[in-house]
Structure formats: C-alpha cells, structure tokens
Amino acid sequence: MSNLLRNSLLLVLAASPVLVTAQDLSGDNIRSLDGQVQEIKSDVLSIASELNTLEERLLFPSHTQVSLFVSIGQDEEFRLDAVQLEINGELASHHIYSFKELDALQNGGVQKIYTGNLTTGEHQLNVTMIGKLKNGKDFNESGSFVFTKGVKPKALGITLAGPGFGSGGIKVGDW
C-alpha cells in the first residue's frame, strides 16, 4: 500500500504548474493535419467568394439591384425584437432577432436584411420595428420613405433608434 502514497504524489505532481500540456505523441500528426485544414478553409473561402459574386450577378443584376441594411444607433439600449420592410406595398422582409443578432447589431454590426430587384425610378419603402424599451414597455414604430433607384446598384441604410432615446425613430439614407 505504500506504493499508493507514491502514486498519489505522482498524481498530485502531474497536476502541478505547467503552462501547456500537449499530447506529445499525437502532436505532430495533429499539427500536420491542422495545416491541411487551414488550406482547405482557404480554398472554401475562395469558392464562397466567387460563388457569391456569381450568384449576385445571376439573381441581382447591378442595374436592378437594391440592398437594404439595418443598424442600430450608438448608445441605444432598447431591445429590438423584429423589423418588417415593405417595398411598394409588398412585404420584402420580416426578421425576428435572436439574442446573438441583437448583440451584434448593438456592437456596431450592420445586417444586410434584403437584396432584390427593382426598376429605375421612385419607390416607396415602409419600415416597421417592434421592440421593448429599457423600462419593459413594448413599442412599435413605423416610417414611410421614398427612394430613387438609378441605373447603379442601390444600397440603403436603415438606422434604428428607440423612441424617446437620442434622436429617435427610423432613419433611411443612401450609403
């Protein structure tokens, strides 16, 4: 049984301070595979980029392309639950936000919420946002905007702010 004490001490020592514990036997194999995984990641990223460009060209040609982006104004503390967009009276997008998505927006992320095709000329955009204020009260706000689609791709930014906080409301502008 005295071996038990020695073994136990060895176990304790195994838990003593080391910066990194690596599986030495498998380390080389894993590192070699790691390099190959990084290569395939790079290849797939390049496929994704090319495919997206091709897809955009096929589905949303530049002369009819319209993209709408959503962002949240700085220092806004309201909770955005959903956004609904209508273009010329037709439902274009209805997005319900997950916690992660909302967090990403609050940290300065910009969401591409809609990409579609429109003819050149004037169009009507209706934006509705649903959310909750810091005091727990539900709110629902809408805005109606007119924008002009030219021959170039159109990108519109929709900046949302909770009512009663900051400048408030829904703002739409060219980007």
Partner: peptide
C-alpha cells in the same frame, strides 16, 4: 456597409461569413 456586415457576422461568432 460591408465592413459593418462582416462585423455583424463576427460578433455572432460566424467567422467564415465575416472573413468571406
């Protein structure tokens, strides 16, 4: 906007999309 879109994905841990 497109840098903002990349950040939108990165803040959600979607680094492939952010990188692309």
């Amino acid at each position: 906007l497109y840098f903002g879109e990349a950040l939108y994905f990165a803040h959600q841990g979607l680094y492939f999309e952010a990188l692309e």
